[in-house]
């Protein structure tokens, strides 16, 4: 059987940031899972098989199929053609030759939710968390957050403290992921300021050579129990246009060759 042509690429404009979310705790058709399996490279399958628990294997499978399908959705490049190069901190970037668009992505997952954000050219980081997670988060805040953030958490009514912690945590994660350095960046060297009705703002200590005027941040609530933060390196003078959509693994078959 001759494979049909890939669907025409969807448009991703210069100022667009598109976020594709996937509920991996919802039932997924076995055929769709088989397609996801076929989209992965042999190296990704080997990484998937290193996980001890089946739920982590399934999550990895869906997350990496989502990345390949999303990149293909905007470029018309067949999913199997994607190759990735990691920087010294392990952040992957598309490395497939002869792709016309400078598409970049960032992937995050937590219990129940996977998110893949894409944009053209600019640095981007995304983080999702399940806000019902039991993770001794306030311990982390006291040890690792900036003093202004710790003080703000102390002022928040106790009933709201865990959720506010996750607002800060996802923003901080999104920023260090956008920088491509992860936890090699000290979390206390930058502080977010949260104000109702305004996008989150960042301030840096001199330890981090960075400029708040070059960043945009958003906090989203893709579900009642999930927080999603986005960090994009771009001047707030020209706000990026953010769209969040839900991916359906059953549709990944469109990209399977």
């Amino acid at each position: 059987m001759t494979p049909a042509a890939l669907p025409p690429p969807a448009r991703l404009a210069d100022d667009d940031v598109h976020i594709w979310c996937l509920r991996q705790d919802h039932p997924i058709d076995p055929q769709a899972l088989a397609v996801c399996e076929a989209l992965l490279s042999p190296g990704e399958r080997a990484r998937r098989d290193r996980f001890v628990f089946p739920r982590h294997q399934r999550q990895f499978l869906l997350a990496h199929a989502l990345v390949r399908a999303t990149l293909s959705h905007y470029t018309g490049v067949a999913p199997a053609r994607w190759t990735f190069a990691e920087n010294q901190y392990g952040r992957p970037e598309p490395a497939t030759p002869d792709v016309a668009l400078p598409i970049r992505f960032n992937l995050s997952h937590t219990d129940g939710l996977i998110a893949c954000a894409v944009t053209l050219g600019r640095d981007i980081g995304v983080d999702v968390e399940d806000v019902t997670r039991q993770a001794a988060g306030l311990d982390i805040a006291e040890r690792y957050f900036a003093p202004a953030e710790v003080a703000d958490l102390a002022r928040v009514p106790e009933a709201d403290r865990a959720r506010t912690f996750f607002d800060y945590w996802t923003l901080k994660e999104a920023y260090i992921k956008a920088r491509g350095m992860g936890l090699a960046l000290p979390l206390r060297a930058f502080a977010f300021r949260l104000a109702p009705g305004a996008p989150p703002a960042i301030a840096f200590t001199p330890e981090l050579d960075d400029d708040p005027a070059t960043w945009q941040f958003r906090l989203l609530r893709p579900t009642a129990t999930h927080r999603l933060a986005l960090a994009v390196r771009d001047s707030p003078v020209r706000p990026v246009r953010i769209a969040l959509d839900w991916a359906d693994p059953a549709l990944f078959a469109r990209y399977h060759r």
Partner: peptide, 9 residues
């Protein structure tokens, strides 16, 4: 890579 530990873990 074995236990899916994330940054918070």
């Amino acid at each position: 890579d074995q236990l899916d530990l994330d940054s918070m873990d």
